[in-house]
């Protein structure tokens, strides 16, 4: 059976297992293998940094969303559920804008 390869750059699975990717599409084609690799090396693979968007508007939205989520967390902690609901709705609106 032929070895699995990335449809865009042709990188083989064996190379991915050695820790090398050929193009951004490799991360979709070999998602499972890459997650396993990162899990074994670092334990965790979820990127907690600020999300990256090339255009400034999306970056601002993403930053605002982070702030809202922090405020939401505090509101729930303080049991201010009315404010928490408002923040949640606002964050949801922003998320939809970002996705669109």
């Amino acid at each position: 059976m032929a070895e699995k390869r990335c449809p865009t750059c042709g990188t083989a699975k064996a190379e991915i297992l050695r820790g090398r990717a050929g193009c951004p599409r490799c991360f979709l084609a070999f998602r499972k293998e890459i997650l396993a690799f990162l899990g074994s090396r670092f334990g965790s693979f979820a990127y907690p940094g600020e999300p990256y968007f090339k255009d400034p508007e999306s970056r601002d939205i993403a930053r605002r969303m982070e702030e809202l989520h922090e405020d939401l967390r505090l509101a729930v902690q303080e049991e201010d559920y009315e404010r928490a609901a408002t923040l949640r709705d606002e964050a949801e609106k922003l998320r939809k804008r970002l996705v669109s």
Partner: peptide
């Protein structure tokens, strides 16, 4: 630089690089 040109990025994994040990930040 990332504002002027698009970097390879994945929401779950962060920045994508050919060396898998450099994925993320």
């Amino acid at each position: 630089a990332g504002r002027a040109v698009e970097f390879a990025y994945d929401r779950e994994l962060g920045f994508l690089n050919p060396n898998l040990e450099e994925v993320g930040s």
